[in-house]
Structures are given as C-alpha cells and as structure tokens.
C-alpha cells in the first residue's frame, strides 16, 4: 500500500507494524467486518418479515394457512442449526441449479449421479465464468436466506406470543367501534404487540450477532476466518513472518463482539422505553411515575 512497504523483510519496528497492518490481507480482514454488518443489516429485517408472516399465518382462521405457519415455526425451531447451515444450503444450491437445468439445458438429466452432482455448464449458479464477485455474492445471498429462514422461525414464535398477549379488551373495543378484522389487526393489534415482542426479539438479535461466524461454514470469509488465517504462525514463505498470534486476533474479535452487543443493548433499551410509553403495562406505569 505504501512505497516504504515494498520490501517488508528489511524494515522493522513501527514501519513494519504499519505495513503489516495495511497489507492486502489485512484490508480483506477489515472489509470482512463490513460483510458481517451487512449480513446483519439484511438478515434482521428479513428474519423479522419471515417471523411476521409466520405469526400472521399461524393466527389465520383458515386451517391450512394456520398449520403452515405453525408447522414452519415448529419444524425449523426443532432442527439443529448446523443441519441448516451444512445440509440445507447445499440442498438449496443444488435444487436451484436443478430447476435452472430444466429450463436452460438442452437435454436435462437427473443431476444426482452417484456421488456427483452434474448439470450442464449453462445451469451453474453463478456460471463458472462469472467473476469471483458473483460467486461471493451468491454465497452471501444463500447465507442471508438461510439465516432469515432459521431466525424467522424463532421470531414467528415470539411474535405469535406477543400478538396473543395484547389484552383481548383492546380488540373487543375496536370491534365495538365497527372496525373490520383487518383494521383491528393493523390499527390495534400490531402497534401494541411490539412491547410484548421486544424482549424476545432483542434476545434473537443478540444470538444473531453471535451466530455470524456460521458464515464461515457457508464459504463466506468472515472475521473469524480472517482472524484465524492472519493469526496463524507464518514462515519465511510469507512477506511478514511471525509466530502464532491467534490470541491477539481473537482478543480483537472479543472486543468487537462485546462492543457491538453493548451498543445493541443501549439501543434496545431506548426502543423499549419508547414502546412502553403510554402502555397499560408495568413498564408503561413505571415510565409514567418517573415522569410525574
């Protein structure tokens, strides 16, 4: 990056440290923090949307829809996460390629041949000749989808419980004013349920933050991968040889995760205070007394 870093083995001290910490590999490491943040920024709303859809479906008066919503939450919550992150992603990837092969291959054949999975080259996602960026973006998209599916099931259960926790009297009053089912849902139930859902959702958020190293299982190079790769002892084959420094890199990750969860706690506490405002709950009562 800097001209003085051209020959790393001849420099030492601060210059060495500066060159070392700005090597291409370290820049990849720094970018991977953004990868993790981007994953969280995309997964959290997606999981919330999946959860909302699941909870709404579970409350439906149509039996099949209700069973679908309840079944989604029950099955996904009951299956170990590792199965989703190892097996489901491969199955999803191969399933997509199989569907694409039906559409684009000249003679689509059953692709699962013994140990191999074969589709014609045109059916690969992304295509073999696509740039590395598309391969990474595709892996990342699979990761977001899988995270959203898994965490959406937990969110569905939390939101389902929160919807049931809204006092029945509130809904009856709305109905007495002549609101339709949809209006009651939109105007009364949903605005009031968040205060009941927040503790459960904030737990999920914390767990989601700590689950991001699972990205590594999906082939996305996240901060844990780079910390292990950079920290491992390096021989003279590398430009910056050094002994085993994994401890320091993992300490750095520890600080990052602790800071991140601390900031999350502060933000969640503020949201909680706002949601409790004016509510007929113990939390709302405490706010009212504090203000008085």
């Amino acid at each position: 990056m800097f001209a003085s870093c051209a020959d790393p083995k001849s420099i030492e001290g601060l210059t060495w440290a500066m060159c070392y910490l700005t090597s291409g590999k370290h820049l990849d490491f720094y970018w991977s923090f953004l990868t993790v943040l981007l994953l969280l920024a995309l997964t959290a709303p997606a999981a919330l949307a999946m959860g909302f859809a699941g909870a709404t479906a579970a409350r439906s008066r149509l039996l099949p829809v209700s069973l679908l919503g309840k079944g989604y939450a029950a099955i996904v919550r009951g299956v170990p996460d590792i199965v989703f992150f190892l097996f489901f992603v491969i199955a999803l990837d191969q399933g997509l390629e199989y569907l694409k092969s039906l559409a684009v291959c000249e003679n689509p054949v059953w692709p699962w041949q013994g140990l191999e999975f074969r589709v014609c080259p045109e059916a690969k996602i992304p295509l073999g000749k696509s740039s590395a960026f598309w391969h990474q973006a595709y892996g990342f998209a699979l990761a977001v989808f899988t995270f959203a599916l898994v965490f959406g099931a937990f969110a569905a259960n939390v939101l389902y419980g929160a919807m049931n926790a809204v006092p029945r009297a509130q809904l009856e009053t709305a109905e007495a004013y002549g609101m339709s089912h949809g209006q009651v849902f939109r105007r009364i139930l949903v605005p009031q349920m968040w205060v009941y859902a927040l503790p459960g959702l904030s737990n999920l958020w914390m767990i989601l933050i700590k689950a991001t190293p699972l990205l590594f299982l999906l082939g996305v190079k996240d901060i844990v991968y780079w910390a292990r790769e950079l920290g491992g002892s390096k021989t003279q084959a590398y430009e910056y040889p050094h002994p085993d420094w994994r401890l320091w890199y993992f300490l750095g990750l520890l600080v990052f995760y602790l800071l991140f969860t601390k900031v999350s706690e502060i933000v969640l506490a503020r949201i909680s205070a706002r949601l409790n405002h004016g509510q007929a709950t113990a939390g709302g009562e405490a706010l009212r007394k504090a203000a008085a």
Partner: peptide
C-alpha cells in the same frame, strides 16, 4: 436465473 447468475455467455 440468468439474471441472478449475472454474466453473459463466454468462454468456459
């Protein structure tokens, strides 16, 4: 799906 895979046909 071609849009997803995001590339034109070229050499393998």
């Amino acid at each position: 799906l071609i849009a997803v895979s995001g590339a034109a046909f070229a050499q393998d």
